Structure formats: structure tokens, C-alpha cells
Simulated assay, not measured.
Amino acid sequence: MGRHIKSGIFKVGGFNWAICYYTDGSSLASQGYVGVALELMSPSSGVRATFDIGLVNHRTGLSQVIVNVGEPQLYSNALTRSLFGFYPLMKTSELEVSEFLQDDCLIIQCDLRVIGMPQIEMGTEKIQVPPPDIVQNLQKLLEQKEATDVSFDVQGVTFDAHKIILAMRSPVFKAELYGSMMETRMHLITIEDMQPVVFKALLHFIYTDSLHLPNDLDGEEKIEMVKHLLVAADRYAMERLKLICEYFFSKKLAVENVAAIFHFADQYNSHKLKDACVEFMTTSNRINDVALSQGYSNLKRDYPCVLVEMLEKASKIPKI
């Protein structure tokens, strides 16, 4: 516990990086989980980066994104923060029986994006312009609850927010807060059929435009969380959040769950996700394996119309 294996050094954006792989968590709180951290190896006073980290399925050769850090993080040797965070991938016991592990080996794929800092000329001197900080300012506005003017009651948990920001980000919130659908009690609105943790993540996205999932969630819990967020995105007409959730599910597709995910996508008009499900089934001719899955049987029994649509779509795509 707390010990890690460091990868070879790789260069992105003119800086050297390494992945640190923890075999048994970084602390007592994460013991029993394998996880990763990203380390800046080059000396630097400040580098901003976002990244995705996934594991490669040895059988299919496909990568499954498990960690998505869409909000720029600051790496700085001067601030002794060259090693940033610990991101759990999955329980050790789950990894040992998964197709990510073969002959005691696993492949970690990192998609790293370094965000450069522009320069301006003042006379003969070039000066670096600090990175935009409006997202951080908006996040502080949410966290510090400064000048909030509306509250939400979600299963007994109260969240304070700003009406104008909610209205700017969601046409549904705009109608509820300013239009003919305006709530009679403007200062306290009750949200039905949503968990507090989901509403918190929804607010975080509204203020920062980035998806944030709690680090302590395991694989299945993350899938369930994103499922609820997609429902929330559909409810509040937030197309960007919905698209991000659809992308998340497209990377989680497997023979056992593709039929269930297709049905879920059909319920919430996620056409791109439905197409991804069909493409998954037709690639490498997986349709026969899918037909033997429990998810397929459930769809055949309970929602035959959805199954017919799925098979019709699959029949129109040339098999690879």
C-alpha cells in the first residue's frame, strides 16, 4: 500500500511525463484498489494538462476509459505538485478476473493533453499570459455560496445556486426560473426523483462545464452515476453533458450489457449511443454472442419493439 511502479518516460507538449501505477491503493482509504497517478518529470514552474486513462482489453484490443480528468490540472515542480492525485481504476480482485489482465500483464493507455500558455510582447520582452481562470472563479462562486438566490431541496439535502447561471446553461431552468413555468416559491425548489450526489455533479457541470465523478466509486457505481446524469441531462436539455455521458457508455460496451444500454439509450433519445451499440454488435460479428446474453433475453421478453429496432439497424450495417 502506498508504493507504486513508475512507467518509462514519455514526452507530450514538450514536457516529460510518467505514469505511476499503485498495486494496492495510495492510502488506507483506497487500499484494495489498483490506481494511477500522473507525474511531471520535467522541471517546470507550472504546466496545465487534462487526460484520460484507460485499460486495454487483451481479447478485443480495445481501450476502456476509466479515468477522465477534463478540468485542467496544474503540475508544478516548484509547488511540489509534480505528482498529481491518485485515481482508482478498479478493485484488485476485479482486475485479476478481468480481460485487462493476461499473463500477469496489463496495458495502460493515457491520452494526455497539455494546455499551452500564450505569450504577448511588451516592447522587447515576451510575457506569458496566465491561463483563463473563469472556470475556477465560477467553481468558487458555487462552493462559497456567495450571492446565491435560489435553493434546491434534493431528498433533504439543500443546494444553493445562482438563477442567472442556471438559466444561461439550461433552457429548462430558464423556463422554470424566469418564464411562464416559474416556480411559485422562487427561493426553494424541490427536485423529485434525483439523488443528491447526482444533482451535485449536475451543478458542478453547469458551473465548470466538466464532468466530475467521485473518486471512491467503483466501476459499476460509476456506470450507475453516469446513467443518472444522462437522465438529468435529458431532463434539463443539456446536450453537451448528454453527449459526454453517451461517450462514456460507448466506451463501456460489452457483449453482456450492449442490449441493456441500447434500451436505455432508446428511453432517453440517445441516438448516437444507439448507433454505437449497433456498431459494437456488428464489429467482429458479435451479434451471435449478444443473442446469448441475459440482457438480450430481457429485451426480447420485456421490450420486443426495441429489440426489433436494434436488429433492423444491425442488419443494415456491413459486418466487419
Rank of each mutant, 00 (worst) to 15 (best):
S26C: 12
S27F: 01
S27W: 01
S27I: 06
L28F: 05
G32I: 01
V34C: 10
G35R: 01
V36N: 00
V36R: 02
A37M: 02
E39I: 01
E39C: 07
L40I: 06
M41V: 12
M41L: 10
S42M: 06
P43N: 09
P43S: 12
S44K: 05
S45V: 00
G46Y: 05
G46V: 05
V56T: 11
R59C: 00
R59V: 12
T60C: 09
L62H: 15
S63T: 15
S63L: 08
Q64I: 11
V65D: 08
I66M: 15
V67Q: 00
V67P: 01
N68G: 00
V69D: 06
Q73M: 14
L74S: 12
A78L: 15
L79R: 07
T80L: 13
S82D: 12
S82F: 02
S82Y: 06
Y87G: 04
Y87E: 03
L89W: 07
M90C: 09
M90D: 07
M90V: 08
K91N: 04
E94K: 07
E96C: 09
V97N: 13
S98F: 08
E99V: 02
Q102Y: 06
Q102E: 12
Q102K: 12
C105W: 01
I107M: 03
I108K: 04
I108P: 04
I108Q: 07
I108F: 11
C110Q: 00
C110N: 05
R113M: 09
R113G: 02
R113H: 15
V114D: 03
V114I: 13
G116I: 02
M117I: 05
P118W: 00
Q119I: 05
E121W: 11
E121S: 14
M122P: 00
G123D: 01
E125C: 02
K126W: 11
Q128A: 09
Q128Y: 11
P131Q: 14
P131A: 15
P132D: 10
P132H: 05
D133Y: 09
V135Y: 12
V135E: 13
L138C: 14
L138P: 06
L141K: 13
L142Q: 08
L142K: 05
E143L: 03
E143C: 12
E143P: 02
Q144V: 09
K145M: 03
E146C: 07
T148H: 14
D149A: 10
D149V: 10
V150C: 14
